[in-house]
Computed example of a mutant assay.
Amino acid sequence: MQLQLLIDRMIDQAIELDPSGSYSILIGNAPATETDWATGKKVYRWCPVVQTRLVPNYSVVLAPSPDNLRTSNLIEYHGRILNGDVTRYTIRQSTFSSDDDAPKP
């Protein structure tokens, strides 16, 4: 699967669950496809792009900003480059409730 298409799918899923959330894209030092995709990119679709050896070359991670916890759960997305699978992992549950914004008597 194309790396850019996979990242687009992951961002779309993240925005669907948390429209105000912010994320960073983490890719390995030599992704399984399109090894030069990250060259010259600091940001893609408003998400900072980061290369690290901690992410395996066959996957990409969409990591949430800790600030997302204010309004939603912290959810991390793992995409498998070779087959296009996307898996969500909840890092932490939000304690936010819509009642929190209600005016107090």
Rank of each mutant, 00 (worst) to 15 (best):
S24A: 11
P48R: 14
S72V: 04
W37C: 10
L69H: 04
E16Y: 06
T87P: 10
Q51N: 11
P64G: 14
E34Q: 12
I91R: 04
T35R: 13
D99S: 07
E34L: 02
D100Q: 08
R45C: 02
R9Q: 14
S65M: 14
I7P: 05
F96G: 02
I25D: 01
L5N: 13
L17C: 14
I25M: 01
E16P: 03
L69V: 07
Q2P: 12
V55M: 14
G21P: 01
N57Q: 08
G79P: 04
D12M: 05
K41F: 12
E16R: 06
D67W: 10
P19I: 02
R53G: 12
L54E: 13
I81H: 13
R45I: 03
Y89G: 10
T95H: 07
P31Q: 04
R45M: 06
P19N: 03
I75Y: 03
G79N: 10
T52V: 06
A63I: 08
N68A: 14
S20R: 11
D99P: 00
M1R: 12
S97P: 00
T39K: 06
N73S: 11
Q93I: 09
A30Q: 08
L69R: 11
L17K: 13
A32M: 13
L6E: 01
D100S: 09
I91M: 09
R53I: 07
W46V: 04
A32E: 15
H78C: 13
P64T: 05
T87E: 09
D36H: 05
G84Y: 01
M10H: 04
T35K: 13
I91T: 03
A30Y: 05
Y44M: 13
R88E: 06
R80T: 11
T90W: 03
V55I: 15
E34T: 10
N68P: 15
G28Y: 01
D8P: 05
M1H: 13
A30E: 11
Y44A: 15
L17S: 06
P19Q: 01
G79E: 05
L82N: 10
W37N: 09
S22T: 15
K41I: 12
T52F: 08
K41V: 07
N57V: 15
D36L: 12
C47D: 01
G40K: 12
Y44E: 09
L26S: 04
T71E: 08
Y23M: 04
A32F: 13
R53W: 07
R92P: 00
D99M: 03
I7M: 03
C47M: 07
Q4Y: 00
R80C: 06
Q51V: 15
G84M: 01
Y58S: 15
R92N: 06
D85F: 11
D99W: 03
I25Y: 01
L74A: 03
T33I: 05
T71D: 06
Q51S: 08
S20Y: 10
Y77N: 09
Q93A: 05
L26W: 12
Y89R: 04
